[in-house]
Design a protein around this nucleic acid. Structure first.
Length: 292
DNA sequence: CCAATGCTTGAGAGTTGCGG
DNA sequence: CCGCAACTCTCAAGCATTGG
């Protein structure tokens, strides 16, 4: 015989109530049956879970070890019953997102979604585009949102929303006074950029190379906020998503430069493994974001 | 039909707590 | 400190249900 859910339930209830009799009462079974259930569980595991001191039971090391597992298994089984009984969308989503999307765009969408679907939990993992694509490929996340396109044959990419990068400087920078920036002026700039592997960096470099502008990198930083801070302190020139810069523009700490020769438009993509099983919750989320 | 499983019942044994 | 009632756990036997 295997370990049963009932045995785990008895085990947890005994911990909760402190003795077998009360646990049995709570579970609507006789004390003897509860006692047997515990004994059978201990037999299955080949270890005692409680120390018997007199007529009292004390949870021992084995019991403490089992407790966490038992609670998790019981909770999952209850959840399963709830799903089938309620017909509601219940579940957990692991979502990956590249930095810009994960930190600035997605939280608002996720908040709205979980308010509408109270039984859904969402865990958001933020990394750079490359890291997120790898997590999707290894099924570590259910799906993700990234800034760059991938042609990987196992990935399904769906266009989500449009975004635009902006070149920006500290408000006191000479360039901030110019209406339009020239190619030559941009060639002189020292850049503070995201690391390679970041979608933002990729789009920026592609746009620069199309205009034949060499990129003189002063500093590479892994975080958007770090770049914003550095540039607003007067160090170098940055290029990040417009959506990310709104606060500093409003505070008049930075100025977005007019660089008409650079095509800084890009798209955000929804990405999923082609073999990923689409659960009800995933379907619901995709419908919510209008992804088809 | 039989074996496995899980339950109840009833008996028994150890522990606790209280009154004398 | 002793004796006893009450309490709590274990064990054995037996019953009902389920599934091969």
């Amino acid at each position: 015989m295997n370990i049963t859910l009932r045995q785990l339930e008895v085990f947890i209830t005994i911990i909760k109530t402190g003795n077998i009799t009360k646990a049995a009462e709570e579970l609507n079974m006789t004390q003897a049956a509860a006692s047997m259930a515990l004994k059978e569980l201990e037999n299955q595991l080949g270890e005692q879970l409680f120390e018997r001191v007199g007529k009292k039971l004390y949870l021992n090391e084995n019991g403490r070890h089992l407790k966490g597992y038992a609670l998790e298994i019981i909770e999952k089984s209850y959840e399963l019953s709830r799903i089938f009984k309620s017909g509601k969308v219940v579940g957990e989503l692991r979502v990956g997102a590249s930095s810009t999307i994960g930190n600035y765009i997605l939280p608002a969408y996720i908040s709205e979604f979980i308010v509408k679907n109270k039984n859904v939990k969402i865990m958001l993992e933020v990394g750079n585009t490359e890291e997120i694509l790898n997590k999707i490929l290894s099924f570590d996340v259910d799906f993700g949102f990234v800034e760059g396109f991938s042609t990987h044959t196992d990935l399904k990419m769906i266009e989500w929303i449009e975004d635009e990068l902006a070149v920006f400087v500290n408000i006191n920078n000479q360039l901030a006074k110019r209406d339009v920036i020239s190619v030559n002026e941009l060639k002189e700039c020292e850049w503070i950029l995201r690391e390679r592997g970041s979608g933002t960096r990729e789009v920026f470099e592609y746009a620069m190379s199309r205009s034949n502008i060499p990129v003189n990198v002063l500093l590479e930083l892994g975080h958007t906020e770090a770049i914003k801070n550095a540039v607003s302190q007067g160090v170098g020139v940055g290029c990040l998503s417009k959506a990310v810069l709104e606060d500093l523009v409003r505070l008049k700490k930075i100025k977005i430069l007019n660089v008409p020769f650079l095509d800084l438009k890009r798209k955000f993509y929804f990405v999923m493994h082609k073999k990923k099983y689409i659960t009800t919750v995933i379907k619901k989320f995709m419908d919510y974001l209008n992804l088809h």
